[in-house]
């Protein structure tokens, strides 16, 4: 009680902060865990008895196929982001300081722009009579318009477009920290370019790679509006399944279980990221 009377401001701050986080972060997350082990109820969404049915349903071949397809699209998105982003971040870190500020600004402008609108803009380009098809046909590359929209590829393009900055920024920060000394040392010790890349650059940038993967892979499974706009009904993400279960099918336990799978995936990636950072720390680098 001493703190209450002596430091009313401190107490008020702590109560507010704790209150907010306990009520709007901890409680809701516990509710989801709770809902995932309850029984589906059409009236009140969930009811007793406790059961693991929802988790069993995750293994239902029908859903398993959707999940694996979603995981595949998310993995492809992550891979494409990494392939574009890694050399990009490297090149960015080599540019003069003054230009770097401007270039990073240009990188985050799209991030600050409405993501729905940007996804829609892709539709203008990818549609059957859209800009890309028109351009390719007038150049004589193709004779008939290609089906680009409502394909798996369109979803991956959309996800890459929205998530690329999240891959580049952590990579850029590790390349910024990469000191020339190590590269020179490696060269002086007789390593070739490839060997320096594999034994020095890759391990040193690994935490950035993992941070980027974490920031891309998980949203790439959750951004349900991308398949809604670009993918058609066959290219669904885990996010679409969760949304559908909560808002349309009203099967809360199943939706909750699917969301817990996503959370576990996040925990796993965070663990891997921490591990990679620690390893580098122990090597004295």
């Amino acid at each position: 009680m001493r703190s209450l009377t002596q430091q009313p401001f401190r107490t008020a701050v702590l109560v507010l902060v704790w209150g907010w986080l306990l009520f709007l972060v901890l409680t809701p997350n516990l509710l989801v865990v709770g809902a995932s082990v309850m029984t589906r109820d059409p009236g009140s969404f969930i009811s007793l008895p406790l059961t693991l049915d929802a988790y069993r349903q995750l293994l239902n071949p029908l859903y398993l196929e959707v999940f694996l397809h979603s995981l595949y699209m998310a993995a492809m998105t992550t891979l494409v982001c990494l392939l574009i982003g890694y050399p990009f971040a490297w090149a960015l870190s080599k540019v003069g300081k003054r230009n770097q500020v401007l270039l990073i600004f240009l990188l985050i402008v799209p991030f600050w722009t409405n993501s729905l609108v940007r996804t829609y803009a892709l539709k203008l380009i990818l549609a059957t009579n859209g800009l890309l098809n028109n351009a390719l046909m007038s150049l004589g590359v193709i004779d008939e318009p290609m089906q680009l929209l409502y394909t798996e590829g369109a979803v991956i393009i959309g996800l890459v477009y929205l998530l690329l900055p999240f891959m580049i920024l952590p990579l850029y920060s590790v390349f910024e920290d990469l000191q020339e000394d190590y590269l020179r040392a490696s060269h002086d010790l007789g390593a070739g370019r490839l060997s320096t890349f594999i034994h020095v650059i890759v391990p040193l940038t690994l935490p950035g790679v993992l941070a980027g993967i974490m920031l891309v892979l998980l949203p790439a499974m959750g951004l349900f509006f991308v398949p809604d706009i670009l993918g058609g009904s066959r290219n669904l993400l885990v996010g679409n399944v969760i949304k559908n279960q909560f808002l349309d099918a009203r099967n809360w336990p199943f939706g909750a279980a699917a969301s817990i799978m996503l959370t576990l995936a996040m925990a796993f990636l965070m663990f891997a990221h921490r591990l990679s950072k620690r390893r580098i720390g122990e090597d004295g680098v």
Binding site: L21, V32, L223, G239, F246, W252, L262, M266
Partner: peptide, 20 residues
């Protein structure tokens, strides 16, 4: 808790708040 809010996929936050 702050870290979890920032890192967890938006959809996870969304359904947990809806439930609350």
């Amino acid at each position: 808790m702050l870290f979890i809010v920032m890192m967890s996929p938006e959809i996870v936050l969304a359904i947990s708040l809806l439930a609350l």
